[in-house]
Design a protein around this nucleic acid. Structure first.
Length: 845
RNA sequence: GCCCUCGUGGUGAAAUUGGUAGACACAAAGGACUUAAAAUCCUUGCCCUUUUGGGAGUGCCAGUUCGAGUCUGGCCGAGGGCACCA
């Protein structure tokens, strides 16, 4: 018997799909649409196992929906701007454009080899002027709507390379390339006013019922809505300052007020510009970097001013004002009122600077003389030492009452605050979308007119310059707008902007007037199922949601603003890690094992230290190259394996054994298939035996159910089960409707193993128009059912019996059962519970 | 510290949502076929018993229920997210 030749078969079908444009999609209002989208890849040059998993899951779904007669949009593109291209180009003296294009063509070939059902005619690439032209127009549109603005912001600055560093380029406070101490530097940058939509972005989460709760929770926390009030503190001291505004969620603890802390970037700091000590203090603070996390890890320090703040509840009590490193200018007003007794951070600060610690909340089970000792008391409780608040429950009553008091006395107002900050979109880099803004000779902002778009990136420029590469392009920068000489902005847009609207572009990839066509997006949007890694749970997904809000803003005709109706986040692909005796990472290709426990280096037979399984990454060298695996086992086998071992939302362990098992399954299924085809043709079977019909209908039911629930690993189990069933069944003499049932089974398998099953269906010759089968209820149950017999809730026996027997007959039959009669002999059955056609529980004493 | 998720054999995992725990696969041991190997197939899998059979059992402890992997409360452990957020 011939073995299944995956190589020629897979090539054959891929060519067939390509030639016939099988997956080309057109708008068709007569059909229900299904937009299936996987997060598009960065063209690094080679696909990795994470891509294989992501795109296989999506492809199974897309093919399934197509068989269910949906009009399926399943496109693919390239997130092709970004730093790796710029870095690679710098290192090897290449052009980022050429490097990127070469990578795209290599990866496209690899993706095609996976047998994905993609409409390649809709392919887009974000680094193409055809794409970013529209992005520049969106930028201007948002600018006109007042959703883009310019402000100063801090960045990580590498003083040696004269360049801005991304957070991941800062390692232990030093630049990754130069090793120089990174500084905080203020730069003028563009911002999207995402915080304007905080409320909408938060509320929108409620409508996303097909999103994982985990992701919704993460976004909710990120947006961070908090209820409280703003308080205007009166200030006395040696400066011409009368008030400082604070935001607080705990106005109830004002009677425990013992200091006021300001951010070093607070406007008041300008009065201390010439103060040497303050300068040193501020520098100390600036070493901590710009991320919130690095600020957090620093020790709490303060700088005492000569100012005093008055307690709004008791104006005769005055407390010191500090600058402190733990106060962030970005949040609230850059000022915090400190109540050490009921905030751990304030407590530590007060201890350090020996400030007053007054207890104003007691636990419910303690007396009124309760005093905070070793740590702040932050839980619910009752108010004490707080005049008109005494005895009230807090939070809750006490907060309400204190806000009432502040409002009545014009000392403060109820306020809702969000943690979400505006989105800084300027990047001091070459390989990104140019910002369509110029500056005239006075430095005033001039919009680039629509007709002049796109502002194209200059090609083949020298990247080994200090600072921002575009800044050196004197000719490129010069632009004449309405007869005025201007200079272009030399920053480029954050690549998250590119990916915030690409799903719209896929709906009308060829529209040259605008980023999309309104009619197209009305038909295709929202994305019915979006699939990608959980690492994008916050930024990419939130930015995309913002982009939709921004397009909808002042435009009533725009579609409903949630872009992704369904979201699925798949887990990572993991592999064991290996290290040699020098503690260097070793790749799986370089090691061998005989017993599965002890590993050795192939080269010198030296022992390898086996580390824990971790997600595949180049830096740990624990990657498996999908291309090599496809050479060895074929695309169908890889698809089969990558779905088989774990539920798709969880991490999966790469296993050589598992991969081989997948390959074997395909081989043995092919042999079985040949046998079945022969049986179909040679012997006309009579139609007495219903086993296959019942099995097939049950399979259709549970297979469809699991597929819709994304339980892909269970699907694979069903396929194994089906193989086992069929290989026994085929030995029987009588099988009813073999061809009909077998064809249905093949169609179920098709989305997972498209090449193999295309070939199989081709053999049966009725595969012209295939569609997803539906189960017929009358075949779902046999005449007989298995009834579980429990005694006092414990399983004792199992009987096969006629279906739908009435309770009396059932009970009689049950009592006849040997095992049961052994048990209930001499005992009295005083109750029984029956679950129809399933179970009977006898209660005996 | 706060929030979320998850704890099931040697391993990855199923369990139709409160009704046969361990489907399916990997690994292991034993066996069949074979001169032999490979491939393939079958059996086994915790405890007691020679077998028939019986018992325990889904991280731990309680509870609800005729019946709990599934529901409730507490504890222990692992993973992820957020964070001096005022």
């Amino acid at each position: 018997m011939d073995r299944y030749n995956f190589k020629s078969t897979e090539e054959k079908w891929q060519k067939f799909w390509d030639k016939n444009k099988t997956f080309k999609t057109k708008k068709d209002l007569s059909k229900k649409k299904f937009y299936c989208l996987e997060m598009f890849p960065y063209p690094s040059g080679k696909i990795h196992m994470g891509h294989v998993r992501n795109y296989t899951i999506g492809d199974v779904l897309a093919r399934f929906k197509r068989l269910q007669d949906f009009n399926v949009l399943h496109p693919m593109g390239w997130d092709s701007f970004g730093m790796p291209a710029e870095n690679a180009a710098k290192e090897n003296n290449l052009d980022p454009k050429e490097w990127t294009e070469k990578n795209i063509s290599a990866m496209k070939t690899q993706l095609k080899r996976l047998g994905l059902s993609i409409d390649w005619d809709r392919e887009i690439s974000t680094c193409s002027p055809n794409y970013y032209k529209h992005q520049q127009l969106f930028f201007l549109e948002l600018y006109d709507k007042g959703l883009v603005y310019r402000k100063e912001n801090y960045v990580n600055w590498d003083p040696v390379d004269q360049t801005v560093l991304a957070n991941e380029q800062v390692i232990d406070g030093r630049g990754w390339r130069s090793g120089a101490q990174v500084e905080r530097k203020k730069l003028n940058q563009w911002f999207f006013n995402i915080s304007k939509f905080s409320e909408q972005l938060l509320n929108g989460l409620n409508s996303l019922s097909e999103w994982p709760n985990k992701v919704k929770t993460m976004q909710k926390n990120w947006i961070g809505k908090s209820f409280g009030c703003e308080i205007d503190f009166r200030i006395e001291g040696d400066l011409p300052v009368k008030n400082i505004k604070c935001f607080t969620t705990r106005p109830d603890t004002l009677f425990g007020f013992s200091f006021l802390a300001l951010s070093v970037d607070h406007p008041l700091s300008k009065h201390y510009e010439n103060n040497q000590e303050f300068k040193i203090f501020k520098e100390e603070c600036s070493k901590t970097g710009t991320t919130e996390e690095s600020i957090a890890q620093a020790e709490k320090i303060g700088f005492k001013t000569n100012l005093q703040a008055l307690n709004p509840f008791e104006p005769n009590i005055k407390v010191p004002v500090f600058f402190a490193n733990f106060v962030l200018m970005d949040y609230g007003f850059g000022a915090v009122f400190g109540c050490p007794a009921h905030d751990q951070r304030d407590f530590e600060f007060a201890k350090k600077y020996k400030l007053n610690i007054k207890t104003v909340v007691r636990p419910k089970d303690k007396e009124d003389d309760f005093q905070v000792k070793d740590e702040a008391f932050v839980e619910e409780g009752l108010m004490i030492n707080s005049s008109f608040l005494n005895g009230l429950k807090t939070p809750g009553e006490a907060i309400e009452k204190s806000i009432d008091y502040l409002t009545k006395n014009k000392l403060g107002n109820k306020k809702i605050n969000f943690r979400l900050k505006d989105w800084g979109i300027s990047r001091q880099r070459y390989w990104g979308c140019p910002i369509p803004i110029a500056y005239d000779e006075n430095g005033d902002i001039v919009k680039v007119p629509k007709e002049m778009l796109p502002i194209k990136l200059p090609e083949k420029i020298n990247l080994n310059t200090k600072g921002n590469p575009l800044d050196h392009q004197r000719k490129w920068k010069e632009i004449k707008i309405n007869g005025k000489k201007c200079n272009l902005d030399t920053d480029t847009l954050d690549t998250f902007v590119d990916s915030s609207w690409y799903f719209l572009r896929f709906c009308s990839p060829e529209n040259s007037e605008y980023g999309f066509d309104n009619e197209d997006i009305k038909y295709w949007m929202p994305v019915d199922q979006y699939i990608g890694g959980v690492e994008h749970a916050i930024l990419h997904l939130l930015y995309s949601r913002f982009f939709m809000q921004a397009l909808k803003f002042k435009n009533q005709n725009f579609i409903s603003p949630e872009p992704f109706q369904g979201l699925f986040t798949q887990g990572m692909v993991c592999h064991q890690t290996y290290k040699d005796e020098k503690n260097k990472w070793v790749s799986p290709d370089e090691v061998f094992t005989e017993n599965g426990k002890d590993y050795f280096k192939i080269k010198d037979k030296k022992k390898i230290i086996v580390g824990p399984s971790e997600s595949m990454s180049k830096s740990k060298k624990n990657t498996i190259d999908p291309e090599k695996i496809m050479d060895q086992f074929g695309a169908d086998a890889v698809r089969f394996f990558i779905l088989s071992d774990s539920p798709p939302e969880k991490d999966v362990q790469w296993s050589e054994q598992g991969m081989i098992a997948a390959y074997k399954f395909i081989q043995k299924f092919w042999i079985l298939h040949k046998e079945i085809t022969k049986e179909i043709v040679n012997k006309k079977r009579t139609d007495k035996d219903m086993d296959l019909t019942i099995y097939t209908n049950k399979l259709i039911e549970k297979f469809t159910f699991s597929l819709e629930k994304f339980n892909m690993n269970v699907l694979i189990a069903y396929l194994h089960e089906t193989y086992n069933f069929l290989s026994k069944e085929i030995k029987k003499l009588d099988i009813k409707d073999l061809e009909k049932n077998y064809t249905k089974i093949l169609i179920l398998m098709f989305p997972i193993l498209p090449h193999l099953i295309s070939e199989c269906l081709n053999d049966i010759k009725n595969s012209n128009t295939i569609s997803w089968p539906s189960a017929r209820k009358e075949y779902l149950e046999d005449k007989y059912v298995n009834i579980v017999i429990q005694i006092n809730g414990k399983k004792k026996s199992l009987i096969k019996i006629e279906k739908n027997l009435d309770d009396k007959d059932l009970l009689e039959n049950v009592k006849k059962d040997k095992k049961v009669s052994n048990f209930i002999d001499k005992k009295r059955v005083f109750k029984h519970i029956i679950v129809k056609n399933k179970l009977i529980n006898l209660i005996v004493k």
